[in-house]
Design a protein around this nucleic acid. Structure first.
Lengths: 156, 156
DNA sequence: GTGCATGCAAAGCGTTTGCATAAAC
DNA sequence: GTTTATGCAAACGCTTTGCATGCAC
């Protein structure tokens, strides 16, 4: 069994970036490493602070530009959880499809992949029907549940 | 059959605001009227421009404060369609449950209520299961499909 | 008359952009 | 050596806040 934790090796990243006309840089590697080490959905500023520990010269602007590129190339997924900042996670193909459960108080986010088979099946059907009826070329969907996590619900 | 187009009469709005310790003002009425007349999902600035026609002295700040209050009291629904600004619609009880289809190019939004019976049913089941498993008090959900509308898909 | 609501201006905050420098190739 | 990537500072756009004035009650 392979012990491949990361979605793609440094070499693969390098190659794929090159294939799109991008260069492989320390900053881009740092962003991938930070997201690879963390299993959270990090904001640009969080990535910045973590990347800084490895490379103190990195700038926040670079994080924005890098996450933009890496997202557009499919290395990262970009999410909006309603807390007014974009959040990113590695597009790790070893992790299957998942949806999110968002605490509206503390912003804790739980990725769930339970019960989603039916969900995804229905989603695909709906997507097909909607696409046809409204003549929309549907490319993506968003499902999130909002509520209060155990801690935050308790204290109320 | 009643010819009641608005979700609640001015009297009802007045009473319900009062019940929460809020006063009935021209600005609050204007925001409700604007949203009542439009069937779109309006941004704060759009509401501002329309409300201005009825009352030129109104300020954008008031729109922000008013939509905040009216949303929190359940008169309005607040949405985020990914275009970096909040959008509002009347919480009109005569309109049933609906979800959204969002064009990622021109930001056109289609409310659909087709095919959602099954969707809502599954959602409720999932919500119950997730709530139990993760000890979350789920209060809300978001479903949106993203893609390109007929016009925007054609021109590409 | 009292206290909430308003308008204006300024500040906040995440994000983007311009430009000179530095690094990848 | 050439071209892309970076860092810094400034600008941006939506939203929020401070404060004196105005309006609902």
């Amino acid at each position: 069994m392979m012990n491949e934790k990361k979605c793609c090796s440094k070499g693969a990243l390098h190659g794929r970036l090159k294939g799109c006309g991008y260069r492989m840089t320390l900053a881009r590697q740092a962003v991938m490493d930070v997201l690879s080490d963390s299993k959270e959905h990090l904001s640009a500023e969080e990535i910045f602070n973590l990347a800084r520990k490895k490379n103190p010269d990195i700038g926040l602007t670079t994080i924005y530009r890098t996450t933009e590129i890496l997202s557009s190339q499919g290395f990262l997924h970009k999410f909006d959880f309603g807390d007014k900042r974009a959040r990113f996670e590695l597009a790790d193909s070893s992790k299957g499809h998942h949806h999110h459960l968002v605490c509206t108080v503390c912003n804790k986010i739980i990725d769930y992949d339970d019960f989603i088979d039916e969900e995804v099946k229905l989603l695909n059907e709906t997507q097909a029907k909607l696409g046809k009826k409204y003549n929309f070329k549907i490319e993506n969907h968003l499902i999130q549940f909002y509520g209060k996590c155990a801690q935050c619900a308790g204290g109320e």
